[in-house]
Design a protein around this nucleic acid. Structure first.
Lengths: 198, 198
DNA sequence: CTTACTAAGTTAGCGACGCAAACATACGGG
DNA sequence: CCCGTATGTTTGCGTCGCTAACTTAGTAAG
């Protein structure tokens, strides 16, 4: 794989997704060009269409991989402390925010897709699973079932808060927060929305 | 102004902004085409460039007018109940959510702009003023000064929540809420984040 | 009223991009 | 060994954003 320039790339699909990810970070979800991703991957501009239907399909693939990564980070955060530890909620929020800051371009992309992706089963499944993680942590905290209506509602509220915080910061609508302010904020929210015990 | 086809449009700039707004709602913030806006306004495809520097500049104008509208709705909501009435917080949130639902396209646009708009003074001033409205209502509720640190923090938390809720719903990441669920949610959040008295 | 300047349109055209068609090359199973 | 299929390449079409050069309308001065 080193120097011999094979006619067939071998792993073009993955290479393109990675190149697109970089470009989206550099130029934003709309500013990037497919042609440039091809140049990075070392193929012609028509090559991607052997692996993707069109531009939207490529974006979808980038989204999918990003979603899996985000979910991974959330899982890690949820498992970093034992069930019931109040720190879990804060850590979960920090993981989400951390991802948004590390990959603002794809983060925006994931949550800024237009209607034609709404009925994408794979994506929906992943965001549902993200919601489930939040619900599980919140339910553990409240010592009730994750299926409990109240738990789900509070989990959703928590998600809304963190999600909104990410976007407002990314968009520069608010002055950036120091780590301390944000910690305080997260702590306040966590205890406000999620009671210490049911 | 009726049937005489003037060579000069007269109010082309405003007409274009309005046409763009419609198209953004129909095709999304990225899907629209300038040429189509020209057709709607009844001018050639080169005409817009007498009023706007480029596409980004047009979007900026659409954003600006949308921001003013949103701020107007928020002001109305804040004034619908007397200072101190707990309903003010809920109404404010509903106004924000209502705008996002009524104009999802421009709402996404307003908060999805890439970095080149971050240093736009006019836009920043408007979003600051929106934040001020929230802070004022929250401070009234808590019977403290709007400049109080705690008030501003809680106002921001409230904004985050409502903002995140809007996007998650717009993006179809969650199942849509019935008006009742949303009311309950808003009420719960409002009382959680904003204590009845200081 | 004429004249000259400017604002605000027009047409024509360039260059880039997304995408499709037709062709070329490598791999892999009978 | 051979053929089918997957995966590349080259070529080209249509569209779009934007510019240049020209035309028309309004306005202010003499």
């Amino acid at each position: 794989m080193s120097e011999k320039q094979n006619y067939h790339h071998g792993e073009l699909r993955d290479a393109l997704v990675e190149a697109l990810r970089e470009l989206i970070e550099r130029d934003g979800p709309d500013g990037f060009r497919i042609a440039e991703a091809c140049r990075i991957a070392g193929v012609s501009t028509a090559a991607p269409y052997k692996h993707f239907k069109d531009r939207a399909d490529m974006l979808r693939a980038v989204c999918l991989s990003a979603m899996q990564r985000l979910e991974g980070h959330m899982m890690d955060a949820a498992d970093a402390f034992p069930a019931g530890d109040p720190q879990r909620v804060v850590r979960l929020g920090e993981a989400y925010i951390g991802f948004a800051r590390a990959e603002p371009g794809v983060f925006r992309l994931m949550f800024g897709l237009t209607e034609d992706h709404k009925d994408d089963c794979e994506l929906k499944k992943l965001s549902d699973s993200a919601e489930d993680i939040v619900a599980r942590v919140v339910a553990d905290q409240m010592k009730i079932s994750p299926d409990d209506q109240d738990a789900r509602l509070r989990a959703y509220a928590l998600w809304c808060f963190v999600h909104g915080h990410c976007f407002l910061e990314l968009d520069g609508k608010v002055d950036p927060h120091t780590p301390e302010t944000q910690s305080a904020l997260l702590g306040m929210i966590a205890t406000s929305i999620v009671p210490l015990t049911a």
